[in-house]
Design a protein around this nucleic acid. Structure first.
Length: 616
DNA sequence: TGCGGCTATTG
DNA sequence: CACAATAGCCGCAG
């Protein structure tokens, strides 16, 4: 492949083309044949400049710019290419500068799809695509004396070592040192994107269940990274005074000094300890000591989890006090004033880092409590003036996804119902609650308890779906890697839960065997569930990025993604349009994702002022 | 100081 | 108390 370099493009360069650098770059790219959807790699470094590269022939001349944002914006507006980015860090940098692009090719996100795991730095991506040993891959650690002398550089100033790896100096930040290097780094990115596309095409062509969609998944996963960048920058509207009221109700007013904080803590502790023997000194934050404390009042428990203590509420007043204490302690330590100070910005937006996929099945993740905010706190998530939230959540996404990816006709038929557990219950000849537990148990890998016999009925009613799950289970147990419907590699070989961990030497043989079986079973459950959870995440992201694209025109902004739920922040005037948009996009996405159309997906949609107003 | 265990929150 | 995640604190090893 022949890569075009465009640039170097510098900040503050006082040349003749200063007047309209964006126009110059657009003309240049157009001359090179770049049109809508063509790959154009972009690298950015503050204070240094930006590098651009595309696929084709010929060379461009240097262009000078003060600020990269207008250049990218101009190219985006005129040509709308598919921007090749090493990772979503570049997307975040762009969004921070006010530039939102429509599409991209996120090299790191595609790497995670192709090769599994989470780490996707350029050195690793390069090594995988070129079949280079990971053992000799440069680390991101600071250079030591040895790594420099061991491998000579093919080109002393270039990005590649003589052994084919990217040089440690370049991955360690050297790529951003000069405008020339930024361009070279962009060339490398566009080349990597080309290699990734070849791998994806091979997967697409391989056929068979779950192997035909990898290229499409790469594009939706890339767009999801853009969405993540935007959510990270935009934040979630959160009303500070409402939040402080909610916190205050649980732990009292904000302590003004450290000693006040200690005093508050002491009061909370005393409220529990007054039920204990007078001389006792127990640390309630230590599970071991809590167990001892409970023993002192005559309660023996294997662990002190809330569910366990719930059953002991009547045994001693201390239990109730302890459960209350736990609630308050959670607020004080995790979702209290400190959480607000840390994550809620002066503009009333709660900001955390969003990631397009975790390292396992590929669900989105978020920090700052955006994905696990206590239900009580949702009352503080209030739409800003002139805005409302339009919220949608997918109903029963996992069993519906299972029907789609397995191709089970009977289960697909059940998805025609708004509540698919009703027809499933009929098919199995059990009540709805039993049917639901059985289906969830099958997807999570439960083999014991009440669900066990309903499980056998499931196998005869939906043999294709159950065989699909069993296949995932067997692969997991055997340590064989899996691919989801959308083509994501789920690593089962190493690093997954319980993959190795030799049994403790002091255990007897039969205990070790039992542990080994337990670990294998856990891997089986993991593999079984990853197929469903991963495919559900893929569909969800297709939906989310479709809403993102279609909603841009009406200023409908996605402010939260929650596995099966989307929260849009929209101007009041557009609430109906946004509600329609969410459903239209779901139908469109489902059709593109699973063209067979025998599986129905449903969403519950409502327009609300605050998140807690959602029913459900 | 780093890491596994325990606990809680969410889907 | 199945599957996944983030997050805080304790206890222990180094």
């Amino acid at each position: 492949m022949n890569y075009v370099r465009l640039g170097p493009v510098r900040w503050g360069w006082q040349g003749a083309v200063m007047a309209a650098p964006g126009v110059i770059v657009v003309d240049e790219l157009r001359r090179l044949g770049v049109a809508r959807g063509a790959l154009v790699a972009l690298t950015l470094a503050p204070e240094v400049g930006l590098g651009l590269a595309t696929v084709g022939g010929g060379w461009s001349r240097p262009v000078g710019v003060d600020d990269p944002a207008p250049v990218v914006q101009a190219v985006e507006h005129e040509l709308r290419p598919r921007w090749v980015l090493w990772s979503n860090e570049t997307a975040v940098a762009l969004v921070r500068r006010g530039v939102r692009v429509a599409t991209c090719w996120d090299v790191a996100a595609v790497h995670r799809l192709l090769f599994g795991g989470w780490r996707a730095d350029p050195a690793r991506v390069w090594a995988h695509l070129h079949g280079l040993p990971l053992a000799t891959m440069p680390t991101s650690r600071p250079l030591d004396l040895f790594s420099q002398v061991e491998h000579g550089d093919a080109d002393p100033d270039g990005p590649l070592r003589s052994d084919g790896h990217i040089s440690a100096e370049w991955v360690g930040g050297g790529w951003a040192e000069t405008p020339e290097r930024l361009v070279r780094w962009a060339e490398l990115a566009v080349g990597v994107a080309g290699l990734q596309q070849e791998r994806l095409a091979e997967l697409d062509a391989a056929g068979g269940a779950g192997r035909g969609r990898a290229s499409a998944t790469a594009r939706s996963e890339s767009a999801a990274e853009l969405l993540c960048a935007e959510m990270s920058v935009d934040g979630l509207p959160l009303d500070r005074s409402v939040a402080e009221e909610i916190i205050g109700d649980v732990i009292g007013p904000r302590p003004r000094t450290e000693s006040e904080a200690v005093e508050q803590r002491g009061r909370r502790d005393a409220e529990v300890l007054r039920h204990a023997p007078a001389d006792s000194r127990f640390d309630l934050r230590s599970p071991g000591q809590v167990k001892s404390l409970l023993r002192r009042v005559g309660i023996e428990v294997p662990d002190t989890r809330a569910g366990r203590l719930e059953a002991m509420r009547d045994a001693h007043p201390l239990v109730d006090a302890l459960l209350l204490w736990r609630k308050a302690e959670r607020v004080a330590t995790t979702y209290g004033y400190g959480w607000l100070d840390e994550n809620l910005d002066p503009d009333g937006r709660l900001r955390g880092a969003w990631s397009g996929s975790d390292g396992a099945a590929g669900r989105m993740t978020a920090s700052a409590g955006l994905h696990n905010m206590p239900a009580d706190m949702r009352g503080a998530v209030v739409a800003e003036a002139g805005h409302v939230f339009v919220r949608a959540d997918l109903g029963q996404i996992e069993p519906r996804v299972l029907a789609a990816v397995s191709g089970d006709r009977g289960l697909a038929r059940a998805t025609q119902a708004d509540d698919m557990y009703a027809p499933v219950a009929e098919d199995l000849g059990v009540d709805r609650a039993t049917a639901k537990v059985a289906v969830l148990g099958a997807m999570y890998g439960q083999t014991t308890g009440h669900g066990a016999q309903a499980l056998r009925r499931l196998s005869s009613a939906y043999p294709v779906a159950m065989a699909y799950l069993d296949g995932g289970d067997r692969s997991g147990q055997a340590g064989r890697d899996l691919r989801t419907y959308g083509g994501r590699l789920v690593r089962m070989g190493g690093g997954s839960p319980g993959a190795d961990a030799a049994g403790a030497p002091e255990l007897a043989d039969h205990d070790r065997d039992r542990e080994a079986r337990g670990r294998a079973a856990a891997r089986g459950r993991y593999g079984r569930n990853a197929l469903v959870q991963g495919a559900a995440a893929e569909l969800f992201k297709v939906w989310a990025v479709t809403v993102r694209a279609r909603g841009a025109a009406t200023e409908a902004r996605i402010v939260l993604c929650l596995h099966d739920e989307l929260l849009l922040h929209v101007p009041v005037a557009h609430d109906d349009a946004a509600a329609r948009l969410l459903d239209d996009c779901l139908q469109e996405s489902a059709h593109r994702w699973a063209p067979d159309a025998s599986v129905r997906f449903v969403a519950e949609i409502n327009v609300i002022r605050r998140w807690s107003d959602a029913k459900g």
